[in-house]
Design a protein around this nucleic acid. Sequence first.
DNA 1: ATGGTAGACGATCTA
Length: 255
Amino acid sequence: MKIATWNVNSIRTRLEHICAWTKETQPDVILFQEIKVTEAFFPFEDIESQGYNLVVFGQKSYNGVAIASKFPLEDITRGLPLCPDDPQARYIEAVTGGMRVASVYVPNGQTVDCEKFHYKLTFMEGLGAHMAHLLTKDEPVVVGGDYNITRDDQDVYDPESWKEKILCSSQERTALRKLLHLGYVDLLRQDSPEEKNYTWWDYRQDSFTQNRGLRIDHILGSPQVIDRLQSTGVDRHIRALDRPSDHAPVWVNVK
DNA sequence: ATGGTAGACGATCTA
């Protein structure tokens, strides 16, 4: 089973790229972030016609997450159960194809120590508490998405210029490490420990052609998933298309 | 230190 995650930066603007990419790479499950649309205006037909079922947790203009799957989607959760009052659509979870999968869009945080940064850390605490709960179910669990955090300097093209900046601060990295300490594994790092698997390149200053990127999109797997891991990758060529998302799709193959 | 670009939306806000 191939599970992919992709921050599309507007699902309506990216529809052509999405359809071409699904035809080419045939993921079984897709975790979308930043769909930037309410469920009422979500382009269901275009994606269903590619053979997918869909569940959507939408929001106007900002955020929004969704899951597409070739298998039926059951036991759906919209929003983190431990943050029921969060008005931002950043988490959706479902059971599909014998796995529990979640699509997460962690807040960017803007700058270290501002109000949005503290919201980011609070969100990560709520996410961690919920992911700890998921481990008690003893199921294969995959939580993939845009975490907006580099794990360490291996994920950064120029660690010196990013030192203690947003996406790279010690506080954010500690929050990400807490998820790993629960028992989840960073599947791309597990599969290719030496690889610089950047997943995001800024739209500005020719970042992609210069390969000035960061790895901030991650797929975390519970122990049951780690045992079945076959291969992983980043579809970098999707970032090179005309009018691309600033993120490339990331995927794992699990037995 | 600033600004560079993109998307939603219709003036800025978010990233």
